[in-house]
Amino acid sequence: MKTPVMTKKTVTVSLMLSGFILLFFMACAPDRREEATDLLSDRDISEDIQLTDETIGEIITSVPNPVEMTVLLQRSNVVYTQDLLNPTANINNYNTNFKRSLNLGVYGTDLVYMNIYDRTVATLSYLRNVKNLAEDLRIGQFFDYETLNRLSESSRNVDSVLYITNRGFDGMSNYLINQGRSSIAVLIATGTWIESLYIATNVQIHPPNKELIHQRIGEQKVVLDNLLLLMSNFRNDEQFEELFNDLLDLKKEFDKVSIQYIYEERTTKVVDDKVVVVDNSRSEVNIDDEIVEGIAQQVEYIRNKIVE
């Protein structure tokens, strides 16, 4: 068959067909609301502010880093217990910012715990969880690709790993507070602290070290007070309210701990380039097994609620 010369008709038909195809698909496209721009319009910002963000920023640094507690445990020859940690699969259950923030803290503590005990391989999935939760909370830039790269590169060096991890959490906290999302920062801090305490109250501790650790547990009383103060800002939210009340219950246990403060002179001296403080003051914590048990139970209750 001879192929005919490109007739006008053929060209027209082809163009029409193309146009028709495009139109057809345009028309068929379902009508979806692409913009949620109604959310952009000005709204009434009324908050019950008791603490300013600035103040929160100042206080929140008092919530201890899990490093201290964990190092103490490790030094006391406490055995590593994987089972205590929050299973990574649980991340699938965290849908709301509330749960996500708390568990970001929880996993953060778990991560530190594993790193200090040099379980670097197992940390990978926890790290992934931390990253994912951070992403979900829109603070993923602190555990971005580059950071993760650095973490994997220095995975042999525990100090580096801890540094990078903690720096990330510090960064998130600062950012959130500056951002005006301090509630999330508070929740992260809370999660971190509860998990830390949970581990401390559930590991097997043998006599010579028990006292030291119990004392440290007792000293957390002060932290709890700060936490409650921080939380008070957000009690209008029912989830916060529930947690707040649970923490109040915990406070009741902690109230049983008494701490004595003995003030003595403090001096400084210069050694090389350092200003070294000579501290003669002391504190004494009165805590016994029963109190620790009480604390442990409540902590467990709160913690399990958080991670379920």
């Binding site: 701490i259 003995i262 200003v275 403080v277 003051s281």
Partner: peptide
């Protein structure tokens, strides 16, 4: 200026930087 402060703590509690 001194680069470091070193503080061996005797009394646990709240401090401020």
């Amino acid at each position: 200026f001194f680069p470091y402060i070193e503080y061996p703590v005797g009394m646990s509690g709240r401090y401020e930087l």
